[in-house]
Design a protein around this nucleic acid. Structure first.
Lengths: 333, 333
DNA sequence: GTGAAAGCGCTAACAA
DNA sequence: TTGTTAGCGCTTTCAC
């Protein structure tokens, strides 16, 4: 059944021209007469010719593929949603090109070494890296490989040359300013991991907003983005600052944990305490009450990362990007 | 900077053997003396040699890659979660092999034609298909291509040769039997789209359970898996069968819609009406009350699909699989 | 057990 | 504008 696909040479014979001409038509180079072009196109259509990608790669030294590497040890749900959205964005741009998308989930040691192999064997022309953790080994590997690399997000230690990130700081600031505008004065925050750029940025955004408004920035609990840490943080805050009237949580998961604790402690949301989260994953809509949150342009990040990489592959100079976030108002504020 | 990677020939020179021998070592064929083998391995290590995949593909006529194609027009959230989990499972098995994973999200016409190109140009050795819709064009394309193809899920019209599916019928039956065991007698269902295998199977499971218990299977509303259709279905059921004391919804989203309507109508869950969903996506845990649901082994589906494809590529005969589901008990029943 | 050499299907440089 | 041909880096016969 599986009959060998036609080769370029067969197309040439059928069209009555040389392989060089066929190749020129396919890669639509100049210097081809209309006559030959038409003959070749006819032959291609008749034979159902499709170029052999391996042969082409070997000849051109280009792979026609890019890899999206995701390094995730994170709590499954958030990470899943996040990467699904990123992939959707990436795919949208990839579809407009002739590139193919290779996916590497490099959580394990094994995954990392596979990623290394791909880089070394030049199986891909470029890489997009979604390193949700700091100091990710993948980042160094990609750099060492010399392949064009675009990062999603930044680390604290060093800013990659090409990256797309969400405006964590601005988003947090806007969220807290919203609380202030709504008349809240004793605003607390539950931070994410402060050794991440996102965690740091969101904390800075909080401080900026409260300090600029002449309010105290001392109502702080430190979490790690997880629901449990949000609950724990909320308990601490309630103990230490019983006067608080608003909480900005650096993730929706933490906000959800905080909501639970507030409910247990008989605090009404938003009457007694307003709550804002960050992310807008599914859950935000289904909490009680629905959670006001800062929406990140996750799909757009995927799109822009891909556009950036494509530019890089074309030899153009792209610009790193910080994408704006959006405050989504719901019942919790 | 980007210096050309070492070739097999260079390894051969360094090791003082022929390229043939190096190749034999790399593909660990027999007929290599320990001496040569060691020399070659040393040279490989020293040079940091990694085979050029394009050249290898050209020579072997194998691509060393499989494609996971997802055809999704579905409501973003569920589809995202679903495919993220599948991908995780797929990746886990892929990591154990030398295969590379290509991802094609073929929602648009463009995506479909890209998929076709991949098949025709033999850029992949096999394909995994996650066609969330029935009668998906991708399915036909894959079949026509003659490439080994494994399906996730089945369609109603025809059962693919190789597939992995969840036990929709059994899961539904178990869920409803649970309701019966809990003393419910007037059990309703909100079905999913009945032109899908999953929708049909879950409906059948419901009927099986109630009929076998000597109860009525007439409390039925038809939905389309979406939250809105769940709400609509629940309204109809409440009108037509005010005596109902339990609802089995064929998706969590519909269950959530149903919960809202029940609340609006002053029905207590689970006191007045017990509710069971199907799927166990994130939201299920955060509903009020938390939703009892049938959990599908989504990640396992990804894993098993991949194992099946790998077997096919190895020329073995796999067996199509129906994976068991699990009832997750929470507060809503 | 090993080496030599003929491809795999395409591109690109050079000649014509 | 077109044809010819030498690779691209690997695998795999076939001799030895």
């Amino acid at each position: 059944m599986t009959t060998r696909p036609p080769t370029l040479e067969e197309v040439a014979q059928r069209a009555g021209v040389s392989t060089g001409t066929v190749s020129r038509v396919i890669n639509n180079a100049r210097h081809v007469s209309d006559k030959s072009r038409r003959a070749v196109e006819k032959a291609i259509a008749e034979l159902g010719y499709v170029p052999n990608t391996a042969a082409r790669s070997l000849a051109t030294q280009r792979r026609g593929a890019v890899v999206l590497a995701i390094s995730s040890d994170d709590p499954a749900l958030f990470a899943n949603l996040f990467f699904a959205e990123v992939i959707t964005g990436v795919n949208a741009v990839i579809e407009e090109t002739d590139l193919q998308l290779m996916l590497v989930l490099a959580a394990s040691e094994r995954g990392r070494s596979r990623f290394g192999k791909i880089l070394q064997s030049r199986s891909a022309d470029g890489v997009m890296l979604l390193a949700l953790k700091e100091n990710d080994p993948l980042s160094t590997m990609a750099e060492d490989s010399g392949l064009p690399t675009v990062h999603g997000g930044r680390s604290l230690d060093r800013t990659p040359q090409w990256y797309v990130d969400a405006d964590n700081r601005g988003g947090a600031r806007t969220a807290v300013e919203h609380l202030i505008a709504a008349g809240r004065r004793n605003i607390a925050t539950i931070t994410g991991e402060l050794d991440t750029h996102a965690g740091q940025g969101r904390y800075m955004g909080y401080r900026e907003a409260v300090v600029l408004a002449g309010l105290s920035d001392q109502r702080v609990a430190h979490g790690d983005f997880s629901e449990a840490s949000g609950a724990a943080g909320m308990k601490l805050l309630l103990d230490d600052h019983p006067d608080l009237d608003a909480v900005f949580a650096a993730s929706d998961a933490m906000a959800i944990g905080a909501l639970d604790v507030l409910r247990e402690n008989g605090k009404r949301v938003p009457e007694d305490v307003a709550v804002v989260g960050f992310n807008d994953v599914v859950t935000a809509r289904n909490t009680q009450p629905a959670l006001t949150t800062v929406r990140q342009p996750i799909e757009a990040m995927g799109r822009e990362m891909t556009r950036m990489l494509v530019r890089l592959l074309n030899g153009e100079q792209p610009t790193s990007l910080i994408l704006p976030t959006e405050l989504v108002l719901r019942a919790s504020t």
